[in-house]
């Protein structure tokens, strides 16, 4: 089993993800440079947070044209596990690997804070170690995290249980007050139909150790490890 963390120019959570996987969970992990064209040998690719290419033009818009992305798309189309965190999620929507878009937070400001999110679907490679309805404490830090999609896309997402996490209050209630950025349906993270591509705005790599205030982020990475180790889940077509 091997994780690869992609480094774009301007990625800044690349080392945090690498540290979380390699030193906290102790799984084999390596960096993948954005000019790389061959990414064979990996079981899960992480697109980390940050400001790829300065987020100039539009968040994630330039990164999708990065040389490594062709290989990443290839990898995912063959069923490889792909997770995009924060800026990584933005890149996934820009690349068309996940539906919808992430637009400016409703308050028009960058927000960094602890956040509660509720687990909506546990039958995926990314959430199988969670409980349905479980409330996780995973921080957010973004300026463009408002999930947006047209009505039809939203209906499809809901129908196929592609919404994996929603912003909620401490009791797990999905309320407007608990929604930090104005995301439709309080969406914090979604996967594709096939359930091998997952994007989320909260940062699981920031809630891996007790001293950081939460260890709930582990559940997401441990789910992936569990999936890769047991292969017990069958991906949908």
């Amino acid at each position: 089993m091997k994780f690869g963390v992609v480094q774009f120019p301007g990625s800044n959570c690349d080392y945090d993800c690498y540290y979380a996987l390699k030193y906290v969970l102790r799984v084999p992990t390596a960096f993948i440079w954005h000019k790389e064209k061959d990414i064979s040998g990996y079981d899960c690719i992480v697109l980390p947070g940050g400001f790829s290419y300065g987020d100039y033009l539009r968040v994630g818009a330039i990164a999708r044209y990065s040389p490594v992305m062709k290989a990443v798309v290839d990898f995912a189309s063959k069923g490889g596990l792909l997770i995009g965190i924060c800026n990584g999620f933005q890149i996934l929507t820009e690349a068309g690997l996940l539906p919808g878009a992430l637009i400016r937070n409703h308050c028009l400001r960058f927000i960094c804070k602890p956040q509660n999110i509720r687990v909506e679907n546990i039958e995926t490679p990314f959430t199988n170690r969670c409980q349905k309805g479980q409330v996780l404490k995973v921080p957010i830090a973004h300026g463009e995290g408002c999930y947006y999609a047209d009505q039809k896309t939203l209906e499809e997402l809901e129908e196929n249980n592609q919404v994996l996490f929603r912003y909620c209050d401490i009791e797990g209630e999905i309320t407007k007050a608990a929604n930090p950025n104005g995301s439709l349906h309080n969406i914090a993270g979604i996967c594709n139909k096939k359930r091998n591509i997952f994007g989320l705005m909260p940062h699981p790599e920031r809630s891996m150790e007790e001293c950081l205030g939460s260890t709930d982020g582990r559940l997401i990475f441990e789910s992936i490890i569990n999936y890769l180790q047991t292969d017990s889940l069958i991906l949908k077509d």
């Binding site: 080392y15 945090d16 400001r109 927000i111 960094c112 921080p139 830090a141 001293c211 950081l212």
Partner: peptide, 14 residues
């Protein structure tokens, strides 16, 4: 003020 700053990146802020 401080919520507009990413005060967690590098994951060392205890």
């Amino acid at each position: 003020v401080y919520q507009q700053y990413d005060y967690q990146v590098q994951t060392n802020t205890i």
